[in-house]
């Protein structure tokens, strides 16, 4: 861990207290902001490598901070939010947040999400063409999917679906993002397609190990292609 700079935006000093300790212990440099205005100022001037953003801020909505930040930067953003606020999370993800963590959370989980987001950012410029996870290989150059060396027969739709998830491996992809990418913008709301095709895709690629699925459901929000953690 090489001194990457993380901006933590939260109005509760208690959150900063342990996050600072944990992030510093992991080798990050921690910047802090307690209001939306301060956060935007820091993002613009200090150019952090990643932002951890609480959605409930005293001066403005976290989503607003995100939307403004996205006007001038592609810095990865991880949202901190309450579990029951699904709509808020989806909105934030659609606004360009990279991932989210539900409060209360274990530090290990946040750190894992941060690593995934940072990794994606680093490889982000080059389009990923090959994703491998626990024996499952998605080779987008050859349009080939193999599992433990044997190639799998996927329909074109199933393949497209898997590609969208694999390209964002490790990150959550919202329903509407997947639907727009695979079926087109007209089908943005048709989550029932998605459930059917995800079911088919899972039947073909999952090995029956329900503890560690390749495609994880983020209830109410979307799906995540899991890399080996």
């Amino acid at each position: 861990m090489t001194g990457l700079r993380i901006l933590v935006v939260d109005d509760e000093p208690q959150i900063h207290r342990f996050l600072t300790a944990a992030l510093e212990a992991s080798g990050y440099v921690v910047l802090r902001a307690e209001t939306g205005a301060a956060a935007l100022h820091q993002i613009a001037n200090a150019a952090p490598d990643l932002v951890v953003l609480d959605l409930g801020l005293p001066d403005m909505d976290g989503k607003e901070v995100l939307a403004k930040a996205r006007n001038f930067t592609k810095v990865p953003v991880i949202i901190l939010s309450a579990r029951e606020r699904e709509a808020e999370k989806i909105a934030a993800l659609d606004l360009g947040a990279d991932d989210y963590v539900e409060k209360p959370f274990a530090v290990g989980e946040l750190l894992a999400r941060m690593r995934a987001a940072l990794r994606h950012k680093n490889s982000g410029e080059l389009e990923k063409t090959r994703v491998e996870s626990r024996g499952l290989v998605v080779d987008m150059d050859k349009r080939l999917v193999t599992k433990d060396g044997t190639s799998l027969k996927l329909t074109p739709r199933e393949y497209d679906l898997l590609c969208v998830l694999a390209k964002n491996a490790g990150r959550v992809v919202t329903h509407s993002h997947i639907l727009t990418a695979v079926w087109g913008p007209a089908h943005k709301e048709d989550t029932q397609y998605l459930r059917v095709f995800i079911g088919q895709l899972r039947a073909k690629i999952e090995s029956g190990n329900s503890d560690k699925p390749f495609i994880q459901t983020e209830t109410g929000i979307g799906y995540r292609f899991m890399l080996d953690a």
Partner: peptide
């Protein structure tokens, strides 16, 4: 309720897991 219960809980969980890990 959700704010006042969750914030201390988030702090406690965060601190405990930080201590566990580091």
């Amino acid at each position: 309720l959700s704010h006042d219960l969750r914030t201390p809980l988030a702090s406690i969980t965060g601190a405990v897991t930080t201590l566990q890990q580091f």
